[in-house]
Amino acid sequence: MNCKILKGHEDRVWQVVWHPNGQMLASCSSDKTIKLWRLMNDEYKLIQTLDDCHKKSIRSVSFSKDGNFLASGGFDAIVGVWMFDGSVYKLIQQLEGHESEVKGVAWSADGKYLASCGRDKTVWIWDHEDLEFSCNCVLQAHDEDVKCIKWNNNILYSGSYDNSVIQYIYGEDDEWDHLQVQVNHQSTIWSIDIFNKLMLTTSADCTAKVFAIQNGNLKHIQTLQGFHKEPIYSGSFSYDGLYLALASADNKISIFKKDSIDEFGQPHFALEQIFDAFEFDVNCVAFNPKNYLLAASSDDLNIKVFNLQL
């Protein structure tokens, strides 16, 4: 399997995310930096290191849909916001309010909102208008550390140490209404990914689950289990929904392909391949938004981009 290795971080790499154009990657690390990598002449070149915001580990990064903004969340309880000025990303604001580590950041589809979540059991929604960011609300629907957040258009989902997924919708009363949706995981929800009307959740219970999003509710389609023997930290749908990838603490990545459609018109996925990807835990997998390149990051300090040739 063709694989590019990106070296440069000095501590574990928590997350990798693709720029919407599919030509650039952002990575964040316990070394307190964000690194930007661009595909140039069939190699990934380090083009910028962002190190002027966080004083502790950076756990999460997120590009806005247009790629003009980059957000980061750190263990220093800070949310950083960078803006692309035509050549580089520059820090424009540090958002304070979380009482402890920020574990996730995510932009809404229209760029109007930035969400963050953390160890303080809260989800914050920040308004974005005219390059200014302000707190819209603080949501306290979880009983434990909130590990991940994901937007589906302007509906927000969060996953937590309390084993639950919460949905947030902006209501007619100008408040964010929340609803616990049933996922029936037996341990921490580590990641949420969404493709069209499909949701993928991964958990410390060593399973991943696929759901159909129907009228604000989740309908369980499939549980992927028995493939990983350690927590599954991350999951990602391919750009066309034909594949999904899982990353685990067992150092492996698994790839599943849609192989059938059930009587209700919902897809089911079958294992395509599973392989040893790193020497240590695989913290994140992310399919490219344009093709079948798969980026992954690990505790062994490295980033890898696999050309799966699917």
Rank of each mutant, 00 (worst) to 15 (best):
W151D: 04
K121E: 12
H19A: 05
V183M: 13
F133C: 05
D51A: 15
E96M: 08
L200C: 02
G80C: 02
D174M: 09
K219F: 03
I253P: 07
I34C: 01
S64V: 05
L293G: 01
R38D: 14
V16W: 03
C28F: 02
D250H: 09
V79Q: 05
F269P: 00
D177H: 15
H228S: 12
G241R: 07
Y170A: 10
G111L: 13
E99K: 15
V210I: 14
M24P: 00
I221C: 06
W18Q: 08
M1E: 12
E175H: 08
A245Y: 04
N41R: 13
E230A: 06
D85L: 11
A115V: 05
C28P: 09
T33D: 03
I194M: 06
I166S: 04
S62T: 14
A71Q: 11
W18Y: 01
S297N: 00
A247Y: 11
E175V: 15
D281V: 07
K147Y: 07
N152E: 10
F269G: 09
V81I: 10
W190P: 01
V210L: 15
P289A: 06
N288K: 01
V13H: 13
L50I: 04
C148T: 14
E172C: 03
G8E: 01
Q48K: 13
G67S: 13
A247E: 10
I78N: 15
H142D: 14
K45Q: 13
K257S: 12
G216Y: 12
E144L: 10
S30F: 10
N153D: 09
E101P: 10
Y113A: 08
K4L: 14
V165G: 00
E129I: 15
N196W: 08
D174W: 05
A286L: 03
L293H: 00
L301D: 11
A212L: 09
V305F: 07
S160V: 02
I47G: 09
